[in-house]
Design a protein around this nucleic acid. Structure first.
Length: 704
RNA sequence: GCCGAAGUAGCUCAGUUGGCUAGAGCAGGCGUUUCAUACGCGCCGGGUCGGGGGUUCGAUUCCCUCCUUCGGCACCA
């Protein structure tokens, strides 16, 4: 049988593992465990992703070295994974000597193939803001058709595309200043030469979920592939590029190489050769990733592998995000639940089972609904499955199982047949189907016991053989089920093996009767999940609101969860209910958006900031992010202002509220109307917090 | 608005090479057992299969269109 090398995305070393991450690791772990049970040689490789600016900033803030930071986090990650019975054959780090050697090697191959270019990148630079401007931050007149007010990359009037430097009369959309041309050295990897290869690779049947292949075909492969900027200038925590001193590989360059490096470290421990795993026709490599990092795994990574003559992944399995109670995970709602928090309150088996019952082969978000979670685990796992063992094992403790398997009306045979279907479902990452089929088997087993009534027979003298027969059947059916669930619930399988004195490690065992073996005294195999405990977990998460809020999702290779840390759930609620005794004001926000160049008091004075009252607010039809606000400056002076805060505030909650606006901002014609000012709000990519004056302020007052 | 995915019972979902009265689990109601972790078993109620149109002897399934939801992109002065 072909060997399997399976990976999950590398968790970023700047945040703890949360329930969103666990979707992916659980999914992968189940797949690997199943594969092993069928006799396939399979290894599960992972590592921490450690490089990048975030780690550097964190280390500085905490006054210690980056290495100390990432070692601590790696230990925490591995502790969490172990707590959820996620078993890696090797867990490495991208900051390893092995990985560095490998990066050098792949880099040399790319160089050798003539795919690397060093370019003085001339970009438009905003002299007022002190930043380089991405295409979308530049507007000007289209060089083709002369349409005004077009973006730096393409014209929506004539549809032509061009470079921002071609724009006539360009303006920075940040400051309105005329951008200057400035250059900086960058290293690029060109992948356009591999366009045909990538089309063939990504579109080949079974390589990845269909919708992902379509997405790539439509968004990237339909036009020339752009060069990939792989360098970052010092200071940067990472590997210095050997032939380009002062420049470091961008974290996404050395993250996927970590898959290979970690494999190599495992090989060294095992005395095996790396080539058998990464340069072999006999090994299938499968990457399990989240839908947010498809781009890196399906375009750049295959190109790197091909160029350096490594095997190409046979499959890239993509999963969706985790939502909690139907919404994106948010600290403020108590749904940004850390793995370690969960473990304090609930059995990891519950989550493994629940995820398995929800995970299909499609790229769909899955929802963790706390109530459904408790209900489902209890109803299916405890009430009908585990209870099977509990209700039938006691009657045969003294006698053990029948020496010959009794007539059962074909139940066992049906269960054995179902095993093929269940196995196929596991192999296809359709765990939900596997679970459905398994639960159906448990239903049949319960019906059987109910009809056989061993408890009634046990009271009638002379019926001992019948009691034994009924329970032998029930326990054989239970064993089948426990075997089928073993990839999901390894611990349950192990305990069941102790109860029935049998092996539980091979899939094919489900086709063999278990006869004549002793039965151990029954001990609880699993407790019922308590809603109260789940509630406590949520409450504890809410209470711990501040720590790790912003750090959790800047991950380069972050897998499962959506990135919306700390989105304001109820903006109307005062932000500080009590005086906090400690603060966790980390540098994440500042790091994400560095300070602008110094300005003078006169510069500042140019902006006329005023208190204003929102007198009307409504969503803008056709716009997903915009609210149209009517604000009053008092004395009947009103303004029409658009604000990109639809996702964070309900219009009705805003009416009557005092805010700060920039009142002398040049009016701007937008797609949906004229905007006559700007409402001030703090926030980053996924958040917005409106500014309000203290009570007493009146509309029209100037902010000095 | 553009691209993608999806809309089946109160909830979570099965079900399509087009075909018998559209299914399961949970939740709800009724009954029943008491071996088991108040668990199990039986029965019942409940769906215009998002709306409309078309192809067909026949459409939940194929085609068109509209609506809604969720992602991604745009808009966020």
């Amino acid at each position: 049988m072909r060997r399997l090398l399976v990976t999950s995305a590398l968790p970023y070393a700047n945040g703890h593992i949360h329930l969103g991450h666990l979707v992916e690791y659980t999914q992968t772990d189940i797949f690997v465990r199943y594969s092993r049970m069928t006799g396939r040689r399979a290894i599960y490789i992972c590592a921490d992703d450690t490089h990048g600016t975030s780690i550097m900033m964190r280390a500085r803030k905490e006054g210690r070295s980056e290495v100390e930071v990432i070692e601590e986090m790696s230990a925490a990650h591995q502790r969490d994974f172990a707590g959820f019975q996620i078993h890696f054959d090797h867990y490495g780090s991208t900051n390893s000597p092995t990985n560095q050697v490998l990066c050098n090697q792949i880099w040399a191959s790319l160089r050798g193939a003539g795919m690397v270019s060093r370019r003085e990148v001339t970009q438009l630079f905003d002299p007022k803001e002190g930043v380089f401007l991405a295409d979308r931050f530049v507007k000007g007149t289209c060089p083709r058709c002369g349409a005004a007010d077009q973006y730096g990359d393409s014209c929506d009037k004539c549809g032509s595309t061009y470079s921002p430097t071609d724009l006539v009369d360009p303006k920075s959309t940040l400051s309105g200043a005329k951008p200057e041309l400035r250059s900086a050295p960058h290293l690029f990897v060109s992948i356009e030469s591999e366009h045909a290869f990538l089309t063939g690779y990504t579109q080949s049947e079974g390589r990845m979920p269909r919708e992902i292949a379509n997405y790539l075909a439509g968004h990237f492969l339909s036009e020339p592939l752009r060069d990939w900027d792989v360098s970052r200038a010092a200071p940067y925590f990472g590997f210095e590029i050997p032939d380009e001193p002062g420049h470091y590989w961008y974290v996404w360059f050395d993250a996927p190489t970590g898959y290979i490096a970690a494999t190599q470290e495992w090989c060294e421990k095992q005395g095996e050769g790396l080539d058998a795993w990464w340069r072999s026709e006999d090994t299938d490599i499968i990457h399990v990733i989240g839908k947010d990092i498809v781009y890196f795994h399906t375009l750049f990574w295959p190109t790197m592998l091909k160029t350096a003559q490594f095997s190409l992944p046979a499959r890239v399995q993509v999963h969706g995000f985790l939502t909690v109670n139907g919404e994106k995970m948010a600290k403020s709602k108590g749904t940004f639940i850390m793995a370690s928090t969960y473990l304090k309150h609930l059995d990891p088996a519950y989550l493994r089972y629940y995820y398995a019952s929800k995970l299909g082969p499609k790229v769909e978000d899955i929802d963790l609904n706390i109530e459904e979670f408790v209900q489902r685990v209890n109803a299916e796992l405890v009430n009908k499955i585990v209870n099977l063992a509990s209700r039938s094992s006691r009657f045969v403790q003294k006698t053990g199982l029948s020496a010959a398997y009794p007539e059962d009306g074909g139940l066992f045979a049906a269960g054995a047949t179902a095993g093929d279907e269940i196995g196929a479902a596991y192999a296809a990452f359709d765990f939900a189907r596997a679970i459905r089929t398994i639960v159906a088997l448990a239903d049949r087993a319960n019906e059987f016991i109910d009809k056989a009534q061993p408890w009634a027979l046990a009271k009638q003298p002379g019926k001992e053989a019948e009691v034994q027969a009924a329970c032998s059947i029930a326990l054989n059916l239970y064993r089948q089920i426990a075997l089928y669930l073993a990839p999901v619930l390894p611990k349950l399988a192990e305990e069941s093996g102790k109860l029935l004195n049998c092996a539980m490690d091979r899939w094919e065992l489900a086709k063999e009767h278990l006869v004549g073996t002793p039965v151990a005294p029954y001990q609880h195999l699993m407790k019922r999940a308590e809603l109260e405990s789940a509630q406590k977990m949520v409450n504890e998460t809410s209470a711990a609101n501040a720590p790790e809020t912003t750090e959790a999702q800047s991950a380069a290779a972050s897998p499962a969860a959506p990135a919306s840390p700390g989105a304001p759930a109820t903006p109307a609620t005062p932000a500080t209910p009590a005086t906090p005794t400690t603060y966790d004001d980390d540098g994440a926000a500042l790091q994400e958006e560095p300070l602008a160049p110094e300005c003078t008091i006169d510069d500042f004075g140019k902006a006329d900031l005023r208190v204003a009252r929102i007198v009307a607010a409504e969503g803008v039809e056709g716009a997903k992010k915009l609210l149209r606000l009517r604000v009053s400056l008092g004395g009947g002076v009103e303004r029409n202002v658009f604000a990109g805060i639809k996702a964070y505030y309900k219009p009705e909650d805003l009416i009557g509220r005092l805010v700060i606006i920039c009142a002398n901002l040049a009016p701007r014609q937008m797609k949906f109307g004229l905007s006559e000012g700007m409402v001030l709000a703090a926030g980053g990519k996924d958040t917005a917090f409106l500014l309000s004056p203290d009570s007493g302020a009146k509309p029209g007052m100037r902010v000095h």
